[in-house]
Design a protein around this nucleic acid. Structure first.
Lengths: 185, 185
DNA sequence: TCGGCATGCCAACAGCTGTTGGCCAACGTC
DNA sequence: GACGTTGGCCAACAGCTGTTGGCATGCCGA
């Protein structure tokens, strides 16, 4: 049977993710997380040893990218954008992606996580679909998609926030196709 | 004649920009800035009233975008990328852009600055060159370029950092053309 | 030459931070 | 039913933070 403390740990993690997502690493205080989880600050330390430990535990991410080899190459760019926006807008694991991006800009530990996600999840998926020479172009695709997340969810740049996911996908798909070097049909 | 304090103020601003760029807003302490500038922490408060005041003063930005109406439309996307990378890699006013982007992710005041730079500097320049209907597409261009800065200078994603500015410009130019809806020649 | 103002430093404040150790109650096992 | 173990809280610590007020020193105008 699972230890009784699991519920508390989960509550702490949930609160931590929310706080980290809303305020970033530095402005998130253990006291605030503890208050959100209705427990004592010392419990956070007991379970996660340190603030950095809590942070590490809070941003375990698996993009669960599907196999893209079945997707026709022409439809690939559009699929990528839609997949990306979907992960961000209906995230099952809370605001984990938001946490990660927000923190990665000031915290090198988080930045390393982002790099790892690219090399271990994004790049392999694209390589499987398009071949190994695509890696540099895949990195630029990642940069374009991260830029989208940046302007839409973090900076909230009005024209970008006002567009629907579909409008964005339609406009951006040809751009990603160009970046990947896919000739038009 | 300029007051004697101008040198001190300038030293404070220089130190502040470096610190803000390296560590972001929260992790930058007035004491550290003062130490870098070889003066007392209280002087910073005297001249800039508050930490936020110092921050505001530290990120006054003018992109000085040239008039792009003279540039042939085919060359416009490449010109944009090159201009952007040049601003970042040989910035006359220090690491101001780095400060801004790094802080804008966690600090809403800084984010507002970024939005203002888009609406008051970037958007008008592109509207002048391509017409008013281009605004939403221009925002997506901005998002792609900011994504480039994000991955190259902040997250330091290896494939992106390893490419030369020219390689990036060549690969990304068709993508921007597609985003802007410019038909190929 | 003298007075006032600008420039600078020192010392201290109040508040918040992450973290620690000790204490109490509830639980499961023998 | 006693007992060790687990889950939890309380109080306090040491350190750092932004900010303030007072005091010295130099400069400049009269």
């Amino acid at each position: 049977m699972p230890p009784r403390s699991d519920r508390t740990k989960a509550a702490i993690l949930r609160a931590a993710r929310e706080r980290f997502a809303a305020n970033g690493y530095e402005r998130t205080t253990i006291r605030a997380v503890a208050a959100d989880a209705n427990i004592d600050p010392s419990m956070v330390i007991r379970y996660f040893a340190t603030k950095e430990g809590l942070f590490d535990a809070a941003l375990t991410i698996d993009l669960r990218l599907p196999d893209l080899t079945a997707v026709p190459v022409v439809e690939l760019p559009g699929t990528l954008v839609r997949l990306f926006l979907e992960r961000w807008e209906s995230d099952p694991s809370g605001d984990t992606l938001l946490v990660l991006l927000r923190s990665a800009v000031t915290n090198d530990r988080a930045a390393e996580r982002v790099r790892a996600i690219f090399t271990r999840q994004v790049a392999p998926t694209l390589v499987a679909a398009l071949g190994p020479q695509v890696v540099p172009r895949a990195a630029l695709v990642a940069s374009q998609l991260l830029g989208l997340a940046l302007t839409r969810y973090l900076l909230r740049l009005p024209p970008v926030t006002q567009m629907t996911a579909d409008e964005i996908a339609e406009t951006l798909a040809p751009a990603l196709a160009a970046t990947l070097g896919l000739a038009e049909a």
